[in-house]
Write a protein that binds this DNA or RNA. Structure first.
Lengths: 348, 348
DNA sequence: ATGAAAGCGCTAACAT
DNA sequence: ATGTTAGCGCTTTCAT
């Protein structure tokens, strides 16, 4: 449904030709500053909105960008946080629309087929690519512009990406735990198939090494549910030298850890500090509330689209690799001093 | 990126005018069966794919459909199952693309603003509308074609919708539990703000009434995590007359129930049968595996798009209200006889 | 039964 | 610095 005025109406109202309007709007040709300004003003008054289809037809583009969520072979989605995805995709959709593109979700089946040859798109975004990702392969083979959110592992040239700065985030969390007095921090994480899990692991191991601590990592098999977090923590807490802090790469795992502590009578944060990756309502509403690393999925989505549309337009993005900062949200699960206030440490 | 041939090339190859091709393809004008057939064959050979933008430009449409996930005021998404959503939206996207539309996710913010006036769309789908849904209001006010997946509550005329036949599904589950020997079935459910939760509740109450059983319903406050299911079941199992079966409206609640049973030494399915709504990997991989009602989100998404595009084209959908069947997947949590095989009862 | 031609709204050569 | 014009691929009247 077309709402605003057409380019012709703007041209008439401004007493210029449609070419001039087009140029003024797109900053293309050379026109006098006065004219440009006047046209812009008239366009705004008339609520001019370019007709996307017309623009795409003339420009020879499909006007469609694809977004696919990677699936580890044989497993379910590598991305498991619904809220994270909705924010990422929502922001990406909006950014795309602003640039005259429609962002569509490309369904990825379990078969090995190329899901992208069913739709005609100008470029694609792949969320959380996994190790040796088949989607990435397909796109690269086809030569379609591609941006990933999360880095592509196992590649020399990792192409264009936007990623949460998880290394910095993990460091910030560990620092926070250390400041709280933790000396034996354990890590409970999903399978290290994506860049963010790899980063967590790498930073954690490095951190342990620096302090001469023996790393303790638990990777639950099967699904990453609250129960998996419970079991992992239960195992850790039953050991001879139980950890005094646990960091999980998923909020659900974190709440599972909280439950395990409670069931064993281990007080949080007194005896055990707990923190997790990805902030959410679950973390906010748990008891005690869970300290978490707040990511910015909307920023990630927006930047990815900016990068992709730049590529589609045949230009080179100013920054081919972008790190988005995250921050530690301190809550009850790590606040050891009654007086400690809710301070949020910037993680990058 | 345009791939296939243009309508002109098809016309040339078939020795007809582009008008004829257009008519043949869209079943519009009157042409001889022979010609139509020939054109269609040539088009297929040339892999002709209509250029969506051109079609939309000529047809005066935006070529974009919006899809929004409803959010209960003040709460998070009413829809909480990531896999369900991905399947629904994936299938919807595909169905839309086949009809020349791009389906975009309309981000719904927490503010009260109309999220639809930022994008220009031809129609919209709202997933799991909640009671007194603001999104539905906005769309209705604006007169945009609207289809909901899940029914709109609190309305006389509930418009166009596609819904899982949850009443039938719930009945099938209850029947299954009864056949297994359950006489005191409890229900653990999320807040009854959507049609599916309301249906579960209504059918359950009716079922209890028919048997002269006192209904036992627990609605956890806060988030619907595994822990919430645990707590709810723990409360039920601690009562004087504990239930011998529990039905939950969410698989995560169901696995929480399983854990509660285990922690109390209640054997499943021996002492307690457990079944849940929405099948998933979580249900499949739990221990014991969880009997669940398998829905068909892809079917729901597809039908919703069919209905919506019909409306956008100014026609009346043959069926303005569609129920999609679901079926009971019997697993360990309710299989009482060693010999019982994995039989799936059709729920509609 | 089939075709010619006029747009749909916009971009970009190519004038002026 | 600004305007003219020819498409982009398709739908749709209106002729034939």
């Amino acid at each position: 449904v077309k709402v605003g005025a057409s380019i012709q109406q703007v041209a008439d109202a401004a007493n210029v030709s449609i070419t001039t309007v087009s140029h003024a709007l797109n900053g293309k040709g050379r026109l006098s500053p006065g004219t440009r300004e006047r046209v812009l003003k008239v366009a705004a008054e008339l609520q001019y909105r370019p007709h996307v289809s017309a623009r795409n037809l003339a420009g020879g583009k499909a006007g469609v960008l694809g977004l696919a969520v990677s699936q580890a072979p044989g497993l379910s989605f590598s991305l498991t946080d619904f809220a994270y995805f909705m924010q990422l995709m929502g922001a990406a959709t909006e950014a795309a629309l602003e640039r005259g593109y429609a962002l569509v979700l490309v369904p990825v089946g379990t078969d090995g087929e190329d899901p992208f040859d069913r739709v005609s798109i100008d470029g694609a975004i792949i969320v959380d690519p996994v190790s040796r990702d088949p989607l990435v392969r397909h796109l690269r083979t086809r030569g379609l512009p591609l941006v990933t959110t999360g880095r592509v592992l196992d590649e020399d040239d990792d192409g264009y990406w936007v990623d949460n700065n998880n290394a910095a985030g993990t460091r910030a969390v560990l620092r926070h735990l250390e400041r709280g007095g933790a000396t034996r921090v354990a890590l409970v994480m999903g399978p290290p198939v994506t860049s963010y899990t790899r980063d967590s692991l790498a930073v954690y191991e490095e951190w342990c090494e620096e302090r001469g601590i023996e790393p303790r990592v638990v990777i639950p098999q099967g699904d990453l549910s609250e129960g998996a977090g419970f079991d992992a923590a239960d195992e850790l807490l039953a050991s001879d030298e139980p950890p005094d802090a646990i960091y999980t790469t998923l909020d659900r795992l974190g709440t599972g850890v909280l439950r395990a502590a409670r069931s064993r009578g281990v007080s949080v944060p007194g005896d055990l500090m707990v923190a997790s990756y990805t902030d959410s309502d679950v973390a906010r509403w748990s008891n005690p509330s869970l300290t978490a690393l707040a990511l910015h999925p909307d920023e990630v989505g927006r930047r990815a689209v900016e990068m992709l549309t730049t590529l589609v337009d045949g230009a080179e993005p100013p920054e081919p690799r972008v790190h988005v900062a995250s921050r530690v949200i301190v809550r009850g699960s790590t606040r050891r001093h009654a007086g400690a206030r809710v301070d949020a440490a910037l993680a990058d």
